[in-house]
Design a protein around this nucleic acid. Structure first.
Lengths: 130, 130
DNA sequence: CCGATGTGCAACTCTGGGGTTGCACACAGT
DNA sequence: ACTGTGTGCAACCCCAGAGTTGCACATCGG
């Protein structure tokens, strides 16, 4: 666990996969609230077995969302904000990109709707595929 | 399709579920690039059948990520940035929250590590469970 | 009207992964 | 040394959902 950081795309990929499950989101909530907890302790506060929690923690760890540290005979898990932050930024960028494209396309569509309109010397964008 | 907007939590929930699938992400990429496309046209650019694409578009539509409009005998789908933006903001807030909690806990832990330390007049936070 | 093209619906298959149980191993406390 | 508690591993069950096929229905172009 706790490997070096791979490419942002892979981070986003695994984070999205990890966050898709409600139980895992609940798990992250609990971890964020308690700061640190073992799989056994977390399982007591969830309607699933410890083994299920362990598996989920494995997925979350692979996604870089949590990390576990051995303390004596138990393993304390804690939340790691970095991967989540990366995904949030990626998503925000994507949303902005969509907005940009949509605005572009709308503009072109409106321009094409009235081709007989007055077309002054100013040049419009050549293609919307920017 | 294209219902009224539900609570932000439900939006985030369905968006995360929708974005978990690679084919759906690919689908969104194509749609964002082309601006508008039919299920049939999208299926030609993907290694799955049209019906699979239709199902995915259904999921994406339920998540508010795309919307389809009937034009003659075909249905043109387009990307909708709002739900994605909502999820991005939610995620960024969550990441910030984790950071806050972690900083809080770390501070408290350090303070508890040396209880015999000089404790000046300044007051520290009463509990980390904020 | 007829063919071509596109959509909608339904039944079906099959793999992934969420969940469980059972047991072996590791460590702390007395 | 022995017991209690926590972790790790493996086999197993089960179902949601990703994907398919087949066919009926709608629409455009001649």
């Amino acid at each position: 666990m706790t490997e070096e950081q791979p490419g942002a795309t892979e981070v986003v990929d695994s984070v999205l996969g990890a966050l898709a499950d409600p139980t895992r989101r609940r798990l992250l909530d609990l971890l964020a609230a308690q700061g640190e907890a073992t799989a056994t302790a977390l399982a007591e506060r969830l309607p699933v077995s410890r083994q299920a929690v362990v598996k989920h923690l494995g997925v979350l760890d692979a996604a870089g969302l949590v990390s576990g540290a051995r303390v004596g005979r138990e393993v304390r898990y804690a939340v790691r904000p970095t991967a989540l932050d990366t995904t949030a930024r990626w998503m925000a960028t994507l949303a902005a990109d969509w907005d940009r494209r949509l605005a572009n396309i709308k503009r072109v569509a409106e321009a094409a709707e009235r081709p007989a309109d007055q077309e002054p010397g100013g040049r419009r964008p050549p293609a919307p595929s920017g």
